[in-house]
């Protein structure tokens, strides 16, 4: 893709870190890894506006790992908090009360519970109004902070604390993941993308591209969660990579609603490889394999990519 990107190799990402070590977040947390990479590219002059979630606890009195600013709001309204800061800085600059070099980039960071569920209204409002902000949703596909209950971001078949697999419900979570990308895309924001911490260059290039636009710049990041998903902490990046390579987590962007995939796997790895390494899907394999559910998941992924191949590569498979 970006032949003109200034991020050509991983070494181009060795810039200043704005998230220092020592956070109280879980060892191997996918969300903080994404935030760290994201923040490097965004630079230091940022105010992060947060809604209740795991990352909230990153800034817990009297500690903050951030070298930037932080505003915790409440669970439903981080984008509204961003609106207040953006509006205030704008009017104060307009009135000449503060110099432009005191301006900050305003960025929202929330989990999927806030983005997909309780805060959907406030994010829709902010996107609709064209608020000039970044939104980083770290999607660990459940309410991780409260002990991993399902959210509308939970995928089919996942065990969560509120969708336990039982003989009556062998599949665990029965509904399909809400498509937040499409909901946000319907607002036609200038920039929208999915990202994965396994693909840091892709993150960097997307932010680089997004920065050219004024208005909402939205990112949904897959955030493997070792305790919630049930895998060893060392597997976080591998899990994110598997999600991309099995095609269950497509890497794509949409500029004013026009979708383009930034990574098109020519041969999808079987989704089983991804599912079977996580305890949340263990009941689909043990004691007996639930081939039907696995096939449903695999089928949906393939259907998705057939459409992508057709539309973006002009291929019919």
């Amino acid at each position: 893709m970006s032949s003109n990107s200034r991020y050509r190799s991983i070494k181009d990402l060795l810039s200043e870190d704005y998230v220092v070590a020592g956070t109280p977040l879980c060892s191997g947390c996918g969300a903080i890894l994404t935030l760290r990479i994201f923040h490097k590219i965004l630079g230091g002059n940022v105010v992060w506006v947060n809604a209740a979630g795991c990352v909230t606890l990153m800034v817990n009195y009297p500690f903050t790992p951030l070298k930037s600013s932080w505003m915790y709001t409440a669970m439903a309204c981080a984008p509204a908090g961003a609106q207040g800061i953006r509006d205030a800085l704008d009017i104060l600059m307009e009135k000449g009360r503060i110099p432009v070099d005191q301006d900050l980039k305003v960025a929202v960071i929330t989990g999927d519970g806030a983005a997909y569920d309780i805060g959907l209204q406030s994010s829709s409002g902010a996107i609709y109004r064209g608020l000039d902000f970044y939104y980083l949703c770290y999607d660990n596909e459940a309410y991780g902070n409260t002990g991993f209950q399902f959210s509308s971001a939970t995928p089919l078949g996942s065990r969560t604390a509120t969708s336990p697999p039982t003989p009556l419900n062998p599949e665990g979570y029965k509904k399909k993941k809400k498509d937040l990308f499409e909901i946000w895309r319907a607002h036609k924001p200038p920039y929208l993308a999915t990202i994965s911490p396994s693909h840091p260059l892709d993150i960097a290039r997307k932010i680089e591209k997004a920065e050219k636009y004024r208005g909402p710049k939205l990112f949904i990041a897959i955030s493997p969660c070792p305790p919630g998903w049930g895998f060893e902490t060392m597997e976080t990046v591998r899990m994110a990579r598997l999600a991309v390579e099995t095609g269950i987590w497509p890497l794509k962007e949409a500029i004013y609603g026009e979708v383009k995939h930034t990574y098109i796997p020519r041969k999808l790895k079987p989704v089983e490889e991804y599912l079977k390494t996580q305890a949340r899907f263990r009941h689909l394999f043990y004691p007996v394999k639930n081939a039907e559910i696995i096939q449903t998941i695999q089928g949906e992924i393939e259907e998705y990519w057939r459409e992508v191949y057709r539309r973006e590569l002009g291929e019919n498979i």
Binding site: Y61, P62, P65, S69
Partner: peptide, 15 residues
């Protein structure tokens, strides 16, 4: 006021 001005101070927690 519940604010932190001493930013980037988590290293002293020694995780």
């Amino acid at each position: 006021i519940p604010e932190i001005w001493n930013i980037g101070n988590t290293k002293i927690r020694k995780t």
